Simulated scan of single mutants.
Amino acid sequence: MTAARPDATLVKQAIQWMLKLRENGHDSALQQQCAQWRSARHENELAWQRVTHLQQELDLRSLPGAGLALQTLESSQRRLHRRQALKLLGGVAMLGSAAWLAKDLDTTSAWTSDYATGTGERRAFRLSDGTLLQLNTRSAVDRASTERQHLLHLKQGELMITCSPQRQVLVQTRDGLLEGFGGRFVARQDSDCTWVSVSHGRVAIHRPGQAPVEWIERGQNWRLDAQGAYRLDQVNMDAMAWTEGLIVTRDIRLSDFLTQVSRYRHGYLGCSDDIADLRLSGVFRLEDPEQLLLVLPRTLPVQLRQLTRWWVHVEGLA
């Protein structure tokens, strides 16, 4: 069964409950309300466990956004009403922290999957018939094989398949079933779509209730989402480069570039709206994302603002 991923909104709610309990932990009614919230949905409990784990492992006070809100709440108790203090949780910093908490603490898929990688990790697996499965950062795959085929369920993240002629390879994504016919292809599952790129052979896209089958030929890039499957005339990233430990970009927006880099590091990484559309091209090594970010001020009119190693914001020059 596919493991749930903690939603950023639920992570924020879990932090709010934790803050309330820190202030009024003796309140039995509040404890019961929190317990009811946790038991109402499996996803609520998952978010609670993630926040609890973070507090134990990383010390919540040291983290951007969440830590600042917590410290401010504690120091404000004698001057502010609790409801006023909790409004601090609605700020941009809190939302940003909730989003990356959900992202960085999603380890359940790794525990319950046949193949998985952590943040910044890339791994290769050779299946029994010679099929090569490569996983990019924060990826999880389940496998169900028979004598005639491999069925790989991409639960999250990105994979590359180099097909063996010995056995049919099927990759199930949220947006469709991919059938590889020899060769090699990449599938990446984002929150709203699946990206597919074929370097050798070809891939058939099977979508329930839709016909005919779409075909992805060698050298093509496609996007699959709830509305359909679309061929992309141009792409701003080399879809295969990560297998060599690289990000290769062609006139990519700075905001989109940072989104890609953030997949390989812990914490928050973002930029100001006024520089989001700056363009970037080049070849960047993934082995050290922090060093990679230091390249930006040398190539663009930007500067890095870093509160901790967990929180980096790219801004325009003053």
Rank of each mutant, 00 (worst) to 15 (best):
S113V: 03
S113G: 02
D114G: 13
A116T: 11
T117I: 03
T119W: 01
T119V: 10
T119P: 02
E121F: 04
R122H: 08
R123V: 03
R123P: 01
R123K: 14
F125A: 01
R126C: 06
L127Y: 06
L127I: 05
D129E: 08
T131K: 02
T131A: 01
T131S: 02
T131H: 00
Q134I: 00
L135C: 11
L135S: 10
L135M: 09
N136M: 07
R138S: 15
R138D: 12
R138N: 14
S139I: 12
A140S: 15
A140F: 10
A140W: 11
A140K: 14
V141N: 01
V141M: 11
V141A: 12
D142V: 07
D142S: 14
D142R: 10
A144M: 14
A144K: 15
S145G: 09
R148T: 14
Q149R: 12
Q149D: 12
L152H: 02
H153L: 04
H153E: 05
H153D: 07
H153F: 07
L154R: 05
Q156G: 09
G157V: 03
E158Y: 05
E158H: 04
I161T: 03
T162W: 03
T162S: 13
T162Y: 01
T162L: 04
C163P: 01
S164T: 08
S164V: 04
S164M: 02
P165T: 08
Q168P: 02
Q168T: 09
V169R: 02
L170N: 11
L170Y: 08
L170I: 08
V171Y: 05
Q172C: 00
Q172L: 06
Q172T: 02
T173A: 06
G176S: 00
G176I: 01
G176C: 00
L177K: 11
E179K: 08
G180T: 08
G180C: 14
G180K: 09
F181R: 12
F181I: 09
G182C: 14
G183D: 14
F185N: 13
F185Y: 15
V186R: 12
V186P: 04
A187F: 03
A187H: 06
R188A: 14
R188K: 15
Q189V: 04
D190F: 09
S191M: 13
S191H: 13
S191F: 14
D192R: 14
T194P: 02
W195G: 10
W195K: 13
V196C: 05
S197Q: 13
S197C: 10
S197P: 07
V198P: 04
V198D: 05
S199P: 01
H200G: 12
G201I: 04
G201C: 03
G201Q: 06
R202C: 08
